[in-house]
Design a protein around this nucleic acid. Structure first.
Lengths: 206, 206, 206, 206
DNA sequence: CATGAATGAGGGTTCATTCAT
DNA sequence: AATGAATGAACCCTCATTCAT
């Protein structure tokens, strides 16, 4: 953002950091945490090992930084979609579109990301889980409060808005995976239509 | 099954194999693939390392065998639920109940399992994916064909039954995770009710 | 000792351990703790690195084991000399001879040993110090009790026997180093004579 | 000394050098040569790493310079004590007092120092030994020549004065360590008395 | 001239796998 | 057939040293 205002040295550092994280992202996405060595990351990012360790205390730290960076990015995109003005329908549509874009553009990292929120997270001892969960919970609460408007307007039936949010999340994710696994057979538009169809029909007041 | 018909030697071998896999399951569930050593598995299962390698070519092979075993077990339970007689509503309810039981009883291994179907599958280089996917696809097709009956009976709206299956899957999984993460706040029964409520309302003909 | 009674396997293990320690002793003596790598020890002892780590938890552990082994050996030799029958003069002479032999035969390791009892012991975090000190203290107390006999017999003046022991130790070590540094110029026998001359003259009753 | 006569630039350099050595002394004394990094020394002395390397070719060089500095300091103090006017008894008493003061004030560095003269000197590959030894030898010769006066005066028996010096050194060091290790139990004055008692009784003519 | 970012060799350690017994 | 001692490649990380600024 105001990056350009930073002293040249700082800007340079940020650029290097980004390059390291980019290389790490590629590698972790390709092969997973345990199948990537610090040497590889150093090589791919064209820095010396020692330089890597100047920026990140250890491999775990690098991984955490990477995941948090991405998590915040996704979170921000989703929050923006949820905060956009418009009726509930428009916001939900915006959310679906946003998630669709995020999925399409970040499939590899999303695999890692899902492993964090849902799956095992054996990769990293602790801490990351918590932080990512917090972001996830925040966006869910936001989504719930959006849906609550629908309930208050009597557009939606009187269902716990948080549960409606969970349902919507589940539907979106299921269909996005479905699409990504075989885009030919399950084109994006068809998926979006079904999500909206089933979700709205399922929650509408009548 | 027909295990008892096997010569004693073979039966003995199968028992040993099962013990090895049981030990491995415990350990992998606790700590994840990369944080478990073959030595640990050997120790926990009370076999010598060498014996482990008589049964499984390498660590990866052992892991794959374990996952396939579990995948088949889950698949079987789900297929049974789907093949039970009764109207669509009953079958779907049965499916939800079955998945609920599976989740509750196998949370740790399911974390690994999810990493396979959804997430990264970085754990294991390749191959396992395919086999597990096949089972998953089969159960999805079966679920779709069950739901198709609902469409044919005009109980459900005319939605692609496969998409209805995807939607149901998404809903069930989302709510089951929701329940497992905080069983106090999101009791099982409440979750089940919302799933059915939203899903059926969403797909019913009127 | 009763080593031959051990099962063959155990004997073999002891032999290997001894070989590892011997290689480590050579190297540590030559170059000091920090200038010796585990790889070198493995190579010199003709074992694989992994095998080293089967016997010793880590480098520090190996070093401690080595030092304690030697410390006990020296301690035993000195205690034997101190427990030998005979008048105080004979025992002191025996002690000087024993220390002379130990010094001559173990100069390199003694350098390390001295660094432990006297010097820095930055090598090893802790623990070893204490254990070696305990042995050292024990032998000093024993020496003091031997010298006390001299006081009780009125052969020695009434000086605190522990201080007499400290004095004797100081004299012996000083002269042994003196001898070892230039055996030509300071022949062993001359040294021994001076030690005895000064010490006995210094403590005799008249 | 004549430092003030140097051009300002040179004086400044010397001051910086002294600060670096002071920081290094603190750190080496605390943790030993191998547990101190050049970065730490740079940080503690508040210079940049590069500046350190302007003053000292490498870590070893810095260490050697430090040790020589201290060795010269100690040597000077001891030579002063030995050159003081007065009879042999007074000089020896002065030597004991001087060494006592040196020990008490410089325990940590003396640990390193002892490792050099007595012990291993593994810290540093070579070279330092020789220079320090030379100083040590010089002070021993001086002490011997002091004691020789005692022999010539017939105050001392006819013992090789160098051996008398070795004996005295051994006694002093032994008792100083004894004191430093447990000052409560072995108070300084008691130690000094025993040293003098035994030494003089041991060497006096009658 | 002082600086400190960048380097990469080399350290300690682990663990999947083999093979002689 | 079962064993587990032995192996060594490969991991993560540190730190003395250099050199462009």
């Amino acid at each position: 953002m105001s990056e350009k205002r930073l002293p040249r040295r700082e800007r340079e550092k940020l650029r290097q950091r980004r390059e390291m994280l980019a290389a790490a992202l590629e590698l972790f996405s390709e092969k997973g945490y345990y199948n990537v060595s610090m040497h590889e990351i150093a090589e791919r990012s064209e820095f010396a090992i020692g330089t890597l360790y100047k920026f990140f205390r250890n491999k775990e730290d690098l991984y955490k930084a990477l995941m948090m960076e991405k998590a915040r990015e996704f979170h921000q995109a989703i929050m923006e979609a949820l905060n956009r003005k418009g009726d509930v329908f428009a916001v939900v549509e915006g959310l679906i579109a946003t998630k669709g874009r995020l999925f399409a553009d970040n499939l590899p990292i999303l695999r890692l990301y899902f492993a964090e929120t849902r799956g095992a997270s054996f990769n990293i001892k602790a801490g990351l889980d918590q932080d990512i969960r917090r972001l996830y919970d925040e966006s869910m609460m936001r989504l719930a409060s959006v849906l609550e408007r629908g309930v208050q307007n009597k557009v939606f039936r009187d269902i716990d808005p948080y549960y409606m949010a969970v349902a919507l999340e589940g539907l979106i994710n299921a269909f996005l995976f479905c699409w990504l696994e075989d885009p030919e057979r399950h084109p994006y538009e068809a998926n979006v239509m079904v999500i909206k169809d089933i979700f709205f029909k399922g929650v509408l007041a009548r």
